[in-house]
Amino acid sequence: MFAYVVRRVLATIPVMAIVALFVFSLLYIAPGDPAAVIAGDQATPEDVERIRASLGLDRPYLVRFGAWVFDIARGDLGVSIFTNLPVSTMIRQRIEPTLSLMVVTLILAVSVAVPMGVVAAWKVGTWIDKFVMGFAVLGFSVPVFVVGYLLAYTFALELDWLPVQGYTAFSQGLWPWLENLILPAIALGTVYIALIARITRATMLEVLQQDYIRTARAKGAGQRSILFLHALKNAAVPIVTVIGIGIALLIGGAVVTESVFAIPGLGRLTVDAILRRDYPVIQGVVLLFSFVYVLVNLVIDLLYTLFDPRIRY
């Protein structure tokens, strides 16, 4: 197992290298010019050229790529073209809100969606099943920002129960931290709940047909025990896979959710950086996201062994 983990961690290096090359090349050929954005509407072409030269953007592709890779190898993600702040500092400033949002969403989604899926499978064909499936279709169909605006309008503007926007650091207290995350987490989690609930229901329906479930019933096991002990554990592998894949969904959704609720996270940092063509920031954040995604996949693979002892690495 240890050797497997080491192998997988080492395998992230070529993956990250390919991601780095891809991201850098994509930004290189993408239209847009940070020097023109910096110079402003009134700048002359000569001003733009001088700024471009001062930023080193006039250097050849290979020289720029080489310098960037060399810096990354030393653990230096570079400096934002606009703010002059190190990219690592900007990421550090933004990582807590995004992590908080994702963790709260994940907890909320799993704790709601898995029981929903289990109950829907148990009560298949009944109004409960139809309700869960109806919710799942709705959850998939309604965009995150629409859910966000509806929640903000109802619970912040009309009822005044929760704040409209912003983020309070965890260090300022549990409730101030949580009250800013409830609405965004519900908005972001809706599609995720729908996804997990559907997969849980489908997998549970399959598992509930298995012989060992019939055996468990025959020996008099209770319904709760059958559902959550025998069936759910055996259905866990595909569910965990979907939860893992869903992390990418969360990262994408976080960009929109952070904008709607003005949460200063990595999603907004990425969008702002893209609009300004702040190349070092875009490259740094995308690298980080890819690393997280690779890491999540590794954790999921390791979790398989927990749920299914037949799987060995």
Binding site: A152, Y153, A156, L157, D160, Q165, A262
Partner: peptide
């Protein structure tokens, strides 16, 4: 606050 609707709501509250 980049989202206009959110900024407007925040001003209202």
């Amino acid at each position: 606050i980049t989202d206009a609707a959110t900024a407007a709501s925040a001003l209202q509250t």
